[in-house]
Design a protein around this nucleic acid. Structure first.
Lengths: 171, 171
DNA sequence: CTAGCTGCAAAGATTTTGCATGCGT
DNA sequence: ACGCATGCAAAATCTTTGCAGCTAG
């Protein structure tokens, strides 16, 4: 269910272990996530990051690879109420997210009290709980200090109707 | 910020009150939501429901109207981790959702303990909290009883990659 | 009357798919 | 060598937009 927590990261092995061939596109995509711990990348992000490294991979392949990795539980897919999908490395332990609506940075958090209340609510509604999504939106410490805004470099960001930035990561 | 809580629902007035003209498409769309309290409809749902009533409205108009209503806070927009947007009537009070991954039915809930913990977490991370989304996914009481599954009539439902039904409402 | 709204058609954005070729095992 | 995977191109899906004509106030 969760990826092997090996300290020497053998990416081809990790891919083969879930029944997939260790091809270049798959290795490089997974490598990107390992090289950027905690980051959330869209298909397009992956595509451009790989292009910047002069790796010839086609967008359709990136989509296929991300989907397979998500099905294999190597990656986790999120939407964050935007119109695109973002993926992050599945570190095995569940967590929720707090996102800055200005700079788009994402932090993880876990709160046992909330987890327990959720279980209780599901029981009260007579549901068998399978999963949940909890995302807090607000302004991060940096973005609440006006003078510091110009120090933040957005990797790529376009604000959409619902007020969220379309791209969730910064350099 | 929140719609007028009048018992005699004057839909044209509600529309005019937010600075929009009470046109037929707008009146009928808003009526749909009032006639189906608690339901979550996509643009396409609205379009088909209106078509069934022999009301000639074009999909582009439905999209425009839903967007305007969401901006006016008459409706609330959700994504529910799918690839479409769903809208529900804004009853003024915040709530979260619990969704059945089998039949797609949606129930609302509020939990003060969770709300308070969220405020605390935001403070700990030094965020100014603006909003949040919490959605629980599981199997509803009906769907956990195999023999009862055939009694449930899905309005329209197609399961997608992430295991969620694309359409969130049942008849 | 006139600004705002709709229908229509086209385009934009994201994601998926069919098929021939290429590559991992 | 076999069969899965990729590239390429096209399509599918959801959503937005430009523009001309219509309509609510």
């Amino acid at each position: 269910m969760q990826p092997t927590p090996s300290r020497t990261m053998d990416i081809p092995k990790e891919i083969r272990d879930c029944g997939l061939r260790a091809t270049l596109p798959r290795v490089r995509v997974l490598q990107l996530f390992h090289e950027n711990p905690g980051k959330h990348f869209s298909a397009d992000d992956n595509y451009h990051l790989l292009s910047n490294e002069n790796i010839d991979v086609v967008l359709a392949t990136v989509y296929r690879v991300l989907l397979q990795f998500a099905e294999a539980n190597i990656l986790i897919r999120h939407t964050f109420d935007t119109d695109r999908a973002f993926f992050e490395l599945n570190k095995g332990s569940h967590h929720d997210h707090i996102i800055c609506t200005k700079c788009g940075c994402v932090e993880d958090f876990v709160d046992d009290a909330i987890e327990q209340r959720q279980a209780l609510i599901a029981k009260q509604h007579r549901y068998i709980l399978q999963t949940h999504t909890l995302t807090l939106y607000g302004l991060c410490e940096t973005c609440t200090q006006p003078g510091h805004w110009d120090r933040v470099v957005i990797f790529r960001c376009s604000v959409q109707r619902n007020g969220l930035s379309k791209c969730m990561h910064i350099r």
